[in-house]
Design a protein around this nucleic acid. Structure first.
Length: 444
RNA sequence: CGGGGAGUAGCGCAGCCUGGUAGCGCAUCUGCUUUGGGAGCAGAGGGUCGCAAGUUCGAAUCUUGUCUCCCCGACCA
């Protein structure tokens, strides 16, 4: 992609409304544009990141055995009356009346809707277990949206719902999601720590939040340091097998969010292992039993002929929020530092002297060959000065920069810069292209 | 929802107290010179000062109302 063809409205100065790093950088890098408090347009660069995150989430959901579908953003109020949450949800629910004066709402979550779908089609224990998810925009009319996309009112969320015959089976579904989440966040370059969490308005008795440690995190968290370094379970996991021991490993050590923090238990952690920090929640898993299935009469017939409400859980990942969370966890004074897996482009090509015949030719070749290799370079072919190009490329945080100018070409070299470390090396164009091909080839 | 702050050019801001035909930096456009970390010079375009009433000969400026945005807290993916 050529910069001159792309839409990349970067800003030199930070709009005054942005306070935290991720919000400032997303605005400056031309990723998003605010339309109203907590509501954003995703400009091309931000949209690419969002899609990359979404795709990783999707792949790991599928790997864990969940099945994708899509439910609407607008829901009828009637559904929510059945679970008794229509009034309970309060002003955070955006209520809408259609032309026939029917009460509707912009969905803040989908427990009711999917429970209703399930009960409509599934009547027997033979249909169980089921794991269904979708990735859809939600709306919660927060009193005070802030931190850019990290706490927006409209947000993209993956929500998965499990249906099982009993609690024992439901816990297996819970474990699947638990493990899938660790892999999901690891693939995005995030170290997410599962922490015991309050179950909130959804109810239930078993819940973990997946937390990214960051100074600007919205809540205080407390955990055993060893959890932070624990490697992800790995993509070759057998999700049909018993995952309990893996989950136990990750839940044995102390880890809790503010709301459920137990000071005594925390003090029992050896002092040099106590970590008290701030965190950003990027996912949460719940088991809530028969809360909705009972209220909404979603039952299945068991082998003995009796009917019982299904046991359910729900599992959310804040897809749009993660874009901000990754930046919080990965930036420096010059801008964003994208992990390769979610980067909007894996590399940038900087033409230091637009109009110089040899430089243009080398850039064109690099652009063409990298595109042919399926690596999606962003080629800065603009007329900007070198300094402006460097700054902009650093700002948008592409993992690699291939820097090509007349000075180097005279010596037969180009420069390859790694954004994260800042390390540069001079090498021939061919060597540079080969190195990029090997570094970026597999994004999985 | 309690407390605070702000709306003036695409972005960042000054002007407001003490009313008199709107300004600075960046960005944009033109030309020339530059060209390896956000260039220099010269010129140009762009704003019914959030909106609505009111006071006044005259309102960005004073008064009232209203909308929006931001910050702290409470609440939340």
């Amino acid at each position: 992609m050529r910069v001159t063809r792309y839409f990349l409205p970067t800003l030199k100065e930070t709009p005054s409304e942005a306070q935290i790093a991720s919000h400032r950088l997303m605005l400056r890098a031309g990723m998003v544009h605010q339309e109203a408090a907590g509501i954003y347009s995703w400009l091309p660069l931000g949209f690419k990141v969002l899609k990359n995150i979404e795709q990783i989430v999707r792949e790991e959901q599928n790997r864990a055995g969940a099945v994708e579908m899509l439910m609407p953003t607008i829901q009828p109020a009637e559904l929510w009356r059945q679970s008794d949450r229509y009034d309970a949800y309060g002003k955070e629910m955006l209520r809408i009346t259609d032309r026939h004066k029917r009460e509707m709402l912009y969905g803040p979550t989908n427990e009711e809707m999917l429970t209703a779908i399930f009960r409509n089609f599934c009547k027997s224990y033979k249909e169980l277990p089921k794991l269904l998810y979708h990735i859809q925009w939600k709306f919660r009319d927060e009193v005070r949206p802030r931190f850019g996309v990290m706490r927006g009112r409209e947000f993209l969320m993956k929500d998965c719902y499990s249906f099982d015959i009993d609690e024992r089976s439901a816990r297996r579904s819970y474990n699947r999601m638990f493990i899938a989440y660790l892999n999901t966040f690891a693939r995005m370059g995030l170290q997410a720590v599962p922490m015991r969490a309050e179950t909130g308005p959804i109810g239930g008795d078993l819940s973990h939040e997946f937390i990214i440690l960051a100074e600007t995190g919205e809540s205080a968290v407390y955990c055993h340091k060893d959890l932070v370094d624990m490697p992800p379970p790995g993509l070759d996991m057998d999700f049909e097998g018993d995952l309990q021991s893996l989950v136990d490993e990750r839940t044995a050590l102390y880890a809790a969010t503010e709301d459920v923090h137990d000071k005594d238990a925390f003090m029992a952690v050896p002092e040099d292992k106590r970590l008290s920090a701030r965190g950003i929640e990027v996912g949460q898993v719940f088991y809530f039993g028969t809360k909705y299935s009972e209220a909404m009469r979603a039952s299945v017939t068991h082998p003995d002929g009796s009917d019982h409400p299904v046991h359910m859980g729900s599992y959310g990942v804040g897809v749009s929020r993660i874009a901000g969370a990754i930046i919080e966890a990965s930036h420096d004074e010059n801008g964003i530092v994208w992990p390769l897996a979610v980067a909007p482009f894996k590399m940038g090509i900087i033409n230091l002297r637009q109009g110089d015949e040899a430089t243009d030719a080398a850039c064109e070749r690099a652009h063409h060959e990298l595109e042919a290799a399926g690596l999606e370079p962003l080629y800065d072919d603009s007329e900007s000065r070198a300094g402006a190009k460097f700054s902009r490329m650093d700002l948008i945080g592409l993992p690699w920069q291939l820097i090509i100018g007349p000075r180097g070409l005279k010596e037969g070299t180009v420069e390859l810069k790694e954004r994260a470390s800042g390390q540069r090396q001079s090498l021939s164009l061919d060597a540079g292209l080969n190195l990029l091909r090997s570094k970026c080839a597999s994004s999985a």
